[in-house]
Design a protein around this nucleic acid. Sequence first.
RNA 1: GGGCCGUUAGCUCAGGUGGUAGAGCACCAGCCUUUUAAGCUGAGGGUCGCUGGUUCAAGUCCAGCACGGCUCACCA
Length: 522
Amino acid sequence: MSGTLQRTVIGQGAAMNEQKTQHWADAVASEVAAGGRPPVISTGISPSGEIHIGNMREVLTADAVYRALNDLGVATGFHFVADNFDPLRKVSPFLDRETYAPLVGRPLSEIPCPCGEHESYAAHFLEPFLESLGKLHVHVDVVRADELYKSGRMNQRIVTALQRRDVIVAILKELTGKDMGDDWSPFVPMCNACGRMNGTRVTGFDGGQETVDFTCKCGAAGTLPMAGGGKLQWRIDWPARWLTLGVTVEPFGKDHSTRGGSYDTGIRIAREVFEYEPPHPIPYEWISLKGQGDMSSSKGNVLSIGHMLKVVPPEVLRYMVMRAKPVKTIKFDPGRPLAQLVDQVDDATAKGRDERAMELSRAAGFEPVGVPYKHLVMVAQVARFDLDRVMEILERTGYPGVSRTAVADRLEYASHWLAEFAPEEEKYTVQERLPEEAAGLTEDQRRFLSLLAAGLNDGMEGAAIHDLIYHVSEQFEGTPPAELFQAIYLSLLGKARGPRAGSFIAILGPGFCKGRFAEAAG
RNA sequence: GGGCCGUUAGCUCAGGUGGUAGAGCACCAGCCUUUUAAGCUGAGGGUCGCUGGUUCAAGUCCAGCACGGCUCACCA
């Protein structure tokens, strides 16, 4: 306590509070900046399936550090490696078995697109992802693994790995306890006859000519150029890439961070084989879907980034990642909690928001609306997403002068959210005809509606209708007001609850409601 | 079997270098001339997983245990 007092005096209140706990990205950034090497952040994803918001965390985690380093005034490299030269490992459920079973073992960059509209299988998943990155304002140099290999930039790494094959085997044996076997090679050739990587074997190599000799289970054999003739095994590929790209910081999923995992072996291989100091690690946790566990395509619970970018602005997705420490699991709930998150991002005065995380969440063109999201969602539904009517209602409900473009923008998101993720209580639909639910109205409720209908006239304003409702309800001493209101909502919405009755009726049109209430009264 | 992470109010989580706990949401109450909405104000609510240890003092350090989750075993 005494320490806090001292700091408060020195730090002058609010400014000090912000510095009280440093944001994780700033902590990593200052550590990396002090490391002596020019910072180069790397990140990578294998485009073997739909790239979802779980994968997004990796890139945003890297981007946070990238921005934090920029804020420190440190020039930083930032690239994204698409592992499109990895072989297809299995025929996923969403693929046509006939077509893809024979393609297992061939690189993702070399096999056809599932939908036929992209130039390869890898591109099919990569392109929408890169498009989403643009919207998220992640500005990263994209490095495609197939191009990296085909360009020859990995050749020297391949030569080194083949020459020091025994050192690598010893390291893997020591850290993983596994024997590699006599015919094991750090290089995986791609058969020039059948195009597959899963049945080939290295039989020799020429470091000077940069070629590799191979045999394949398809019966082929021959000599391949190192450039594009295959790739390094993942555990060697990763540290090799660190050296080639000069990587000094890299976030990776917890699957790599376990003891004996690929980062563990990568450290040793980097130092002892490639003579390179491994990058600063940022292990991160998965994003799980509320109630459904981790996202995975086999579970069918994948939410793609492009999909979620239709539901909330990019700033909201960014903020979700920025405010959580990488080691913490993010439980993603696209229902009401996501809507609350929208308010935190929209409202600069929102309590409990993390300002630094907010800064790191900036994308482009975000214009705050200044209307609580729940309210906006309700108004949008009453107005059936008609922008003019929405603006008119907002004007009347205590939010005058809000930006029309900002509202229009937010309505677009709200409609998607309502359609897919909003809880039922948040949804209202004015029924075209008298809802079935109105059949169960009590005698009192019917009489109430009848009297209400009699008092309604076109042109009445919300306040007048409001007064009318209460005036009429006074005649029903024995019936709780709640029941009377239910009659209104049941006959309009088919639900027991709804928006504030007076203005709601005014918006719908007193004439329309007059007829509806009379009909419901029977 | 190895390893990692988590376990703080109903929920989601904050809690640099140890000094008997906080924020948002939810909930409840009051106010706004009288909805079950929105808004404003306020209240309640926690033996900080368990057990020991170090200490004048531990959510905060150490050890062990329990529960939960995850990950690795050269198919990331």
